[in-house]
């Protein structure tokens, strides 16, 4: 039977995957626009700009990872759905928030930084590494949020 707790846990998975995915989609889109601009003038830079465009996509993967762990823990993946108490459900819901929110914001902002890095690559291809480093700095906070969400999900005894 689907309890309120189980439904809340589904909410946690949805927040983790959904919000982080939105952030990544926006970030990849911004970086993609800048990449298209560079490519329309100099198609030889495809390799360099592709790396930078892909970087904001990681938040979506982190969100998916947490969502998958939540679904695995509540038995949604194996078809043996557990009946969670309301408090267990709230805990699962809250566990989805760190990566959901931080992933959303950092995904977009990382896209902005990556777009600037792509512009840097357009002007000075030899500086692509620095552009990647700038974009990777934003990743730190998504990784921290992933860690917290992971610890929270694993800390909930079912």
């Amino acid at each position: 039977m689907l309890t309120l707790g189980t439904a809340l846990a589904f909410g946690g998975a949805a927040i983790a995957a959904g919000f982080a995915g939105v952030g990544s989609a926006l970030g990849v889109a911004v970086a993609g626009e800048a990449a298209a601009g560079v490519m329309s003038e100099d198609p030889d830079k495809f390799g360099n700009v592709l790396v930078l465009q892909a970087i904001p996509g990681t938040q979506g993967i982190y969100g998916l990872l947490i969502a998958f762990i939540i679904l695995l823990n509540i038995g949604a993946v194996g078809g043996d759905l557990k009946e969670l108490t309301t408090f267990q459900g709230i805990a699962m819901l809250l566990a989805g928030f760190p990566i959901g929110l931080v992933g959303c914001v950092s995904g977009y902002t990382q896209g902005v930084v990556a777009a600037c890095g792509i512009s840097l690559t357009g002007k000075r291809p030899e500086e692509t590494g620095k552009g990647i480093t700038f974009a990777a700095m934003v990743e730190t906070y998504a990784v921290l949020a992933l860690l917290i969400s992971f610890l929270m999900v694993n800390g909930i005894k079912l």
Binding site: E33, A34, G37, A115, C116
Partner: peptide, 8 residues
Amino acid sequence: AYAMGRVS
């Protein structure tokens, strides 16, 4: 973003 890439 597109303009920035192209102008660069």
